[in-house]
Write a protein that binds this DNA or RNA. Structure first.
Length: 590
RNA sequence: CGGGGCGUAGCGUAGUGGCUAGCGCGCCUGCUUUGGGAGCAGGAGAUCGGGAGUUCGAAUCUCCCCGCCCCGACCA
């Protein structure tokens, strides 16, 4: 197998951290000479990095093939038309890399390839007998991210494995989805990643069921929740809040407006409600959770249209903009500005109440309520007049929304929607995989149908499944490193063994050459530090930085016929007789 | 796109109006050295991000532009 010789490897490790890298994965991959930045979010893979990348790619490919999926490869450079058909030329917005050829024809660099997969299957297959089928590709993708960051984790050019399943009916899709889920579990296990499968929000792609594979990592950019007592896990965007049961409101007094001067915020409102005798509550002090906050935003759609939307949430919670964006996708959310208030005189900033909200109301603004605002709940809320609030306003008696919207912030300690017994806690992760049931959206838009047993055309239902290949390299580095450097899982590592020869005694190098040759003959990938001029310290430090899981040191102890076999992760060192070292390593690693 | 920070050799940096822009790492030559980032000697390498201006004199001051990093917004 391969022997990489440090004396001639195209590699330069850096003693200092690069100034433009923050995350450990980014810092170490640059320092260890795996990657180099070319432009923001665009990187060059150097030999060690490329070897690592190839290993991840190979594992992904092997697992896809083992699951019976077939590999294809679409161009990265694509014509505009297919994306026009699904409206994504417009909907994808500024994140799409667009360009023109010499004749001025619009082209794009593919951010994802739903259209190509769908059209290709349409072009070849037309019978129910051809289904189910799953195709995948490993291809470079392009997205003009507003802010590339974190090295390989969020780039503008990256490599992704994307698969699509094509089925006749929902049961078939369910089965294809399950197969992919299993294939992903074995893939990530082999990659040595510690991950969680969380419920995700499928709304963005118009599908139904969707799950994300998140590599657990404090520095990850996705926030998810887990339950203290059951196995519920979900991306914060997808958490379904637990609604309390509707309550009896027969004993609640009639709503009454009160003058509450200078209370434009929830804090000032709660404060005045607890200090004034006429407003105070008998049984307990008022809290922010007793107030109903009505937030108005402007939602703008890709076609340029926009509308106002009012959201009623308990006053102790903020509207989570990420959850809101996910809920109104593909609409974009912007705050309601002074000019918008001017255009809607019924809305009194800071004192907005349900009375002026709803499609049936004077304002005509759609009014959606948090799921916690169930019938019978009692609220303090704006009276639509500056310096005035309504008390004892009861949902279901005094007001109703046009519907519910679950976009309030998710907090540690919230009731788990999975079991309703445990509570939720927050964690962070890196999205390394995403699977979802796309349904018929693309098949419909692009006319992918097959004839069924009766000769009738049936719209095919699809699933879509992605793994960030280049991102996985960084995710592994992020999860597996220490102060000294990287620590690769063996399958991913650029080599199985890193043999370090030290000293100036040529017999040591000769012995090392022999061991390296034997290991290679046994099928091991060897990184061999055969540099004559580098000092032992340099070699040891480089070995720890580079992160090959097993380091074999041949040097001083060779005088006693011994070599050291060091485990990079634990630091444990075993002294092995020179004559036994190849057998020892084979027993351990093969 | 908003906020913050930064741009000096391949990398990390010093230098706030005054001599030939300094140091460490790395690189080249020679000698010495070889178990935790070696020593000595010699060397190559910088339009100080770009442009305009102020000044006898600008890496340093002013203006404009460009680029990069971080936070937020955004992100199948």
């Amino acid at each position: 197998m391969t022997v990489l010789r440090m004396s001639s490897l195209f590699l330069r490790t850096l003693r200092d951290d690069p100034a433009d890298a923050e995350l450990p994965s980014h810092r170490l991959l640059v320092r260890a000479g795996y990657i180099r930045r070319v432009a923001p979010g665009i990187f060059t893979w150097l030999p060690l990095g490329l070897a690592t990348f190839h290993n991840v790619e190979r594992i992904v490919r092997e697992e896809m093939d083992a699951a019976g999926f077939q590999e294809v490869r679409f161009p990265a450079l694509l014509p505009r038309e297919p994306y026009e058909l699904t409206n994504r030329w417009t909907e994808y917005g500024p994140n799409l890399f667009r360009l023109q050829d010499r004749r001025g024809t619009d082209m794009l660099l593919g951010p994802t390839h739903e259209e190509m997969f769908t059209l290709t299957v349409k072009g070849e297959f037309s019978s129910y007998k051809d289904l189910p089928i799953s195709l995948y590709q490993i291809q470079t993708k392009y997205r003009d991210e507003a802010r590339p960051r974190a090295g390989l984790l969020r780039g503008r050019e990256f490599v992704m494995k994307d698969s699509y399943s094509f089925d006749l009916d929902d049961a078939g899709l369910e089965a294809s989805y399950a197969k992919h889920r299993l294939a992903y579990q074995s893939t990530f296990a082999r990659l040595g990643l510690s991950y969680v499968i969380v419920d995700a929000h499928a709304g963005a792609m118009g599908g139904s069921k969707s799950e994300e594979f998140l590599a657990e990592c404090e520095r990850g950019e996705d926030t998810f929740v887990r339950c203290t007592s059951c196995d519920y896990a979900a991306n914060v965007e997808a958490v379904a809040s637990v609604a309390p049961a509707a309550a009896d409101f027969s004993g609640i007094p009639a709503a009454h407006a009160e003058d509450t001067p200078d209370t434009p915020t929830i804090a000032t409102l709660v404060d005045i409600s607890n200090t004034r005798d006429d407003l105070r509550r008998d049984d307990r002090p008022w809290t922010a959770a007793d107030t109903l906050k009505n937030v108005v935003v402007k939602v703008t759609y890709p076609d340029g249209s926009s509308k106002a939307l009012a959201i009623g949430v308990p006053g102790d919670r903020e509207v989570d903009m990420k959850r809101l964006e996910a809920a109104v996708h593909p609409g974009a959310v912007a705050p309601f500005e002074e000019s918008d208030f001017a255009a809607n005189p019924a809305l009194v900033k800071g004192y907005i109440g349900p009375g002026v909200l709803g499609t049936e109301s004077a304002s005509g603004i759609e009014y959606l309520l948090d799921p916690r605002v169930v019938s019978g709940t009692r609220w303090i809320t704006g009276a639509n007049r500056a310096g005035s609030h309504v008390y004892d306003l009861v949902a279901g008696r005094d007001f109703n929304g046009d519907g519910t919207i679950d976009v309030a912030e998710v907090r540690e300690g919230d009731v788990c929607p999975g079991c309703t017994a445990g509570t939720l806690f927050l964690a962070r992760g890196i999205e390394i995989g995403h699977i979802f049931q796309l349904g018929r959206k693309y098949a419909e838009a692009l006319g992918l149908t097959v004839l069924d047993e009766n000769g009738k055309p049936v719209v095919v239902t699809m699933g879509s499944y992605g793994i960030g290949v280049s991102r996985a390299v960084a995710a592994i580095a992020e999860q597996s490193h220490d102060e000294k450097g990287l620590i690769w899982p063996r399958e991913v590592s650029p080599a199985d063994v890193h043999v370090v020869a030290t000293g100036k005694d040529e017999s040591v190098f000769a012995a090392a050459e022999a061991v390296v040759a034997e290991l290679a003959a046994k099928g091991m990938r060897v990184l061999f530090d055969d540099r004559r001029q580098a000092s032992p310290g340099v070699k040891f430090n480089d070995a720890e930085l580079i992160g090959v899981p097993t380091i074999v040191v041949m040097g001083k102890r060779l005088a006693d016929g011994l070599v050291e076999v060091k485990d990079r992760a634990t630091g444990a060192v075993a002294e092995v007789a020179l004559a036994d070292v190849v057998a020892h390593l084979c027993a351990e690693l093969l």
